[in-house]
Amino acid sequence: MEHWMFNCKEVSHKVSESLDRKLPLLERMMIRMHLMMCRYCARFHRQLRWVRSMARYTQPFGNKSETSVTLPQDTRARLKQTLKSAME
């Protein structure tokens, strides 16, 4: 970067990149400063991290009643047969 201040678009790129690698110290400081001053980029940053945590750790099922749903018997037999022939 030639200039020492990131604009919002640049920050959005860097914030995303920071989820995948450790950025150089100078960039980290520039981002921190920007995030302190810009509530939209701060939101963007929080939201990307929130989406990640939801994507990784969300419980797949809400209420317990759904655990009563099971594969129908004939489907179960058919699946076993399919797997068996695929293994041969």
Binding site: N7, C8, Y40, F44, W50, M54, T58, P60, G62, N63
Partner: peptide
């Protein structure tokens, strides 16, 4: 297109009302 040519936000991120404790929401979220 979320940004103006200047690099500022054009479609600014909105405020999200997040309640991570609600398991129902988690399922729907997925």
């Amino acid at each position: 297109g979320f940004f103006k040519n200047s690099g500022n936000w054009k479609i600014r991120p909105g405020k999200w009302d997040v309640n991570p404790a609600k398991i129902f929401e988690q399922k729907e979220f997925m």
